[in-house]
Design a binder for these strands. Structure first.
Length: 235
DNA sequence: GCATTAATTGGTC
DNA sequence: GACCAATTAATGC
């Protein structure tokens, strides 16, 4: 299959894309690989040797860790332009998280050695990465706080708001379809609790659903419920 | 159509 | 609020 090149790429969020100016005269971009995946493919596995850095070209991915009793903890979802596998790129030889595609997904992959060369020789790129890491850390800290302080209702609502922020809605439904368990694995609760909460929210006319798809009906109401006592938390 | 998986509901601790 | 069990709906083959 053909290789996706960075010059025709439309992903404005991509750190490579943003630094094309300083990258275009280097040989680094030619060392990039393009990977075509189907749905439900584990392209990164906890404990496996690191295989460089991935960018989502198009598609959807979940990043997760397997925890106690084999329970999955979804750390985040990634869409077009986003980075996967950045946590292990300077320390250790093994991935600390797993990643699985939720859709047919095209991935760009930079080998570890290429990435190190890039970061050492291009300050602009390194700065972009620092900025990105700083934001990631902030998000991560916010998530710890939410996990500790939110009740189940708030966790589920917060998850729906996050999905809406990231993927948006078309025709009244979120542009991502997850199983109830996946929602639970992100929110930090169980699928039964998620199901109960979704039913409750449906009764209150705050959301609606068709099969696995969920749509937000009253965004402001949901937002206010979180911000009432979580207004100090941004994310 | 059958078999497996997911969603839902109710109950217990 | 987690875990377990039973029922029903959805989906894959």
């Amino acid at each position: 299959m053909e290789k996706k090149d960075c010059f025709s790429c439309k992903n404005k969020d991509c750190l490579i894309s943003q630094n094309l100016g300083v990258l275009m005269d280097t040989e680094f971009l030619s060392e990039k690989h393009t990977i075509f995946t189907k749905r439900n493919q584990n392209f990164m596995l906890e404990g496996a040797p690191i295989h460089g850095l991935f960018f989502v070209y198009t598609g959807k991915v979940k990043v997760y860790k397997t925890g106690i009793n084999g329970r999955e903890q979804i750390l985040r979802f990634a869409k077009d332009g986003e980075i996967i596998g950045h946590r292990g790129f300077t320390i250790g030889e093994y991935h600390e998280v797993s990643a699985k595609t939720l859709d047919e997904t095209i991935l760009c992959n930079f080998p570890h050695s290429t990435l190190l060369k890039m970061l050492k020789s291009i300050p602009e790129l390194t700065f972009s990465f620092m900025k990105f890491f700083s934001e990631e850390l902030s998000r991560s800290e916010t998530k710890v706080q939410k996990f500790a302080q939110m009740n189940v209702r708030e966790k589920v609502i917060d998850t729906l708001l996050y999905l809406n922020r990231k993927f948006g809605q078309t025709n009244g439904f979120l542009n991502i379809v997850l199983s109830r368990k996946e929602i639970a694995d992100y929110a930090g609760t169980t699928d039964e609790q998620v199901i109960r909460m979704l039913s409750a929210l449906k009764k209150e006319q705050l959301i609606h659903s068709k099969g696995k798809s969920i749509g937000i009906r009253n965004l402001d109401c949901l937002k206010s419920e979180i911000s009432d006592h979580m207004f100090f938390i941004s994310s």
